[in-house]
């Protein structure tokens, strides 16, 4: 698994979980990703990705507080694992290296 790269969406979700620092659950992650990426995302997609990342061992979760807004149902909060953090960093490094190799950036703006 370790050598398998992260998908773009997976990376965004991971980052959002990091930003939320323990407060990340389905909706907050969805909003965080939407805010930064500017696109609208299906809730289901977030859930599926969160669970997939947990299966891969990049996230861990625990059941947390319930509110009236949710009809008294509890949330599942996600937190990044060490392995998850390693993956994120690795992805970042790969990109950084590649960016540095581009000879000259010309922006025609």
């Amino acid at each position: 698994m370790a050598n398998k790269g992260l998908g773009e969406f997976e990376e965004l979700v991971l980052l959002a979980v990091c930003i939320l620092d323990g407060e990340g659950y389905g909706i907050s992650v969805k909003k965080e990703v939407e805010r930064h990426s500017g696109r609208s995302i299906l809730l289901g997609a977030v859930h599926i990705t969160l669970y997939r990342l947990q299966d891969k061992g990049l996230l861990q979760s625990k059941i947390g507080g319930s509110t009236v807004k949710r009809g008294g149902r509890s949330k599942r909060f996600f937190k990044i694992t060490d392995s998850g953090l390693k993956h994120l960093k690795a992805a970042q490094e790969v990109r950084q290296k590649m960016w540095e190799l581009i000879p000259q950036l010309k922006f025609n703006m």
Partner: peptide, 10 residues
Amino acid sequence: EEFLGDLEEI
């Protein structure tokens, strides 16, 4: 439980 909670909230 968790999903219905999220769904209801949103």
